[in-house]
């Protein structure tokens, strides 16, 4: 009986999606970017007139990152990223609260493995370095704070798998708190300097250099540390409560 209901509900929904929703969206690939705001965002001309952007040549545009998705996530729609950071923050606190309320004391132990232990010593610094590279170069290549932080947390997970005595200490909590507060402080500094919350108050430099795009690398560094610390806390809480 349950399966009948399920097929009915899924069928009605699919009928609505394919029959009514699909005709109103444009064909795959057949999009005219000029009708969407993305056109002005790609050409960095939301507050000025259209000027073509050239790699390593255009200087002091309204937004300096070569990665257009980064410019949306951290510059044009930075408020959404602040909300997203809060979602992760609340989820990590929730896992902490709920995992500490479990009555049975458990701790997941892994088998000791000599090869894993030795190779972790080689792989771990490379993983952490790669994670840091991802979030430092967020405005130049794909990636940014979230994948970078996740890679760092993966390094911590590898350390946990290979070494049973490793504990995530309170350092992670302090890192998380200061990084999160740092992001809000950057926003408030934008308010103090420029008059509007989350304004980009540093000079934007040349598109394509490492030191460009104003506040964007700073914000992504904060996010990278915060996400790395948070996910490490989540893994540690799930493991031992």
């Amino acid at each position: 009986m349950r399966r009948v209901w399920a097929i009915l509900v899924a069928g009605v929904f699919l009928y609505f999606l394919i029959g009514q929703f699909l005709p109103i969206i444009p064909d795959f690939g057949n999009v005219d970017l000029f009708t969407r705001v993305a056109f002005d965002i790609i050409n960095k001309s939301t507050t000025s007139n259209y000027n073509s952007v050239e790699f390593k040549k255009s200087k002091d545009l309204e937004d300096g990152s070569a990665n257009v998705v980064t410019s949306i996530v951290v510059n044009y729609r930075s408020f959404d990223t602040l909300g997203e950071v809060s979602v992760l923050f609340c989820a990590a606190i929730g896992v902490g609260i709920l995992a500490s309320m479990l009555k049975s004391k458990r701790r997941i132990e892994f088998e000791e493995h000599k090869i894993l232990r030795t190779s972790t010593g080689i792989a771990l610094p490379l993983i952490l370095l790669f994670g840091a590279y991802i979030f430092i170069h967020g405005h130049l290549s794909p990636g940014g704070g979230f994948p970078g932080g996740t890679t760092i947390a993966l390094g911590v997970l590898l350390l946990m798998l290979s070494n049973n005595e490793f504990k995530v200490t309170d350092v992670a909590k302090h890192v998380e708190q200061s990084a999160g507060a740092g992001y809000v402080v950057v926003g408030l500094m934008g308010m103090a300097i420029g008059g509007v919350f989350l304004m980009n108050f540093l000079p934007t430099g040349v598109v394509g250099n490492l030191f460009s795009a104003g506040v964007v690398p700073i914000v992504y560094t904060f996010i990278g540390f915060k996400v790395g610390a948070e996910l490490s806390n989540v893994i540690s809480d799930l493991r031992e409560g």
Binding site: V69, P142, G208
Partner: peptide, 16 residues
Amino acid sequence: PIYSAVTPVAKFVDPL
């Protein structure tokens, strides 16, 4: 949608 040395013309997909 990344400006780099291999994309002189900005023919990108929608980044939003």
